[in-house]
């Protein structure tokens, strides 16, 4: 993995430290990654077992943890959709962002630490992939992406829901487009290809693989943008600025004028 291109030097140094830290942690706990981690996301080839064994293990796990909602053979029930044909990308996204298994069977499933280990996820993904043809896990190469192109694609296709700074936004009836600030590269790409929840599907006819690389590069950039000007106030725009001018600005001037008109006799 590499840092997005054309970073400012100071940010780049900080990012390198962060990347090295992540890498270090990943080396220490290769199979126990507890948080979405770009380096631990997809390498099915590094798995110790063969593909058929993986599918078998996956089926076992599926029959324990998933079958009650998704049904035997993943054909779906009244409580959960069919997984036939959703593809490895969908399964990998849902499991690695912790959205599956569901914490509660209503509303939008929030991202949380994954419930399965890396190897278990690989097995489950292989099993779901074996149920029928569907989008494979995208191969992301951020270094090959074009940050400028990614920015234009993001503003035209993603900002309407996720916000120009990718901090997330509200949808109707309690649903929301989540913040993208802690999503790993491969999961960003998977979400684009799969369209989880209310998100539209952007397949190869909409974004080529090169454009997808660019888009992921820009989202990675937004996770730690070159950001002059001081505290970013959550990057939620004028709302935060308005509260700051009242809570900080107006309060400060009232303190000033009360102090300056205080009479000596008052103490």
């Amino acid at each position: 993995m590499s840092a997005p291109t054309r970073r400012r030097p100071a940010v780049s140094a900080a990012a390198s430290v962060a990347v090295l830290t992540v890498l270090g942690l990943a080396l220490w706990q290769p199979a126990q990654a507890q948080s979405p981690d770009p380096t631990a996301a997809t390498s099915t080839t590094a798995a110790p077992t063969g593909p058929d064994d993986l599918v078998a293990i996956g089926r076992q796990l599926f029959d324990t943890g998933c079958v009650s909602c998704h049904g035997e053979g993943g054909v779906g029930t009244a409580d959960g959709p069919t997984l036939v044909g959703v593809g490895e990308a969908a399964a990998d996204f849902m499991l690695r962002t912790g959205r599956m298994p569901l914490a509660e069977p209503q509303g939008q499933s929030p991202s949380k630490p994954p419930a399965y280990t890396d190897q278990e996820i690989q097995a489950l993904v292989a099993y779901v992939g074996s149920l029928g043809p569907g989008p494979a896990i995208p191969q992301v190469d951020v270094a090959a992406g074009d940050l400028v192109e990614g920015g234009e694609l993001f503003r035209a296709n993603c900002a309407a829901c996720h916000g120009a700074a990718a901090v997330g936004g509200a949808l109707s009836y309690g649903d929301y487009a989540p913040s993208l600030h802690s999503v790993a590269e491969v999961q960003i790409a998977e979400a684009v290809r799969v369209g989880p929840g209310q998100m539209p599907v952007f397949d190869e006819d909409v974004f080529t693989d090169d454009e997808l690389n660019s888009l992921v590069a820009y989202v990675r950039y937004l996770q730690d943008p070159a950001d002059p000007g001081g505290f970013s106030l959550g990057r939620v725009g004028p709302v935060a600025e308005g509260y700051v001018i009242w809570v900080v600005g107006a309060s400060a001037v009232v303190v000033f004028i009360r102090w300056i008109t205080r009479r000596r006799a008052d103490g």
Partner: peptide, 12 residues
């Protein structure tokens, strides 16, 4: 003109 971002607010 065809784009928009969520959280588009005016100044306070």
């Amino acid at each position: 003109p065809e784009n928009v971002s969520s959280a588009s607010q005016p100044d306070w």
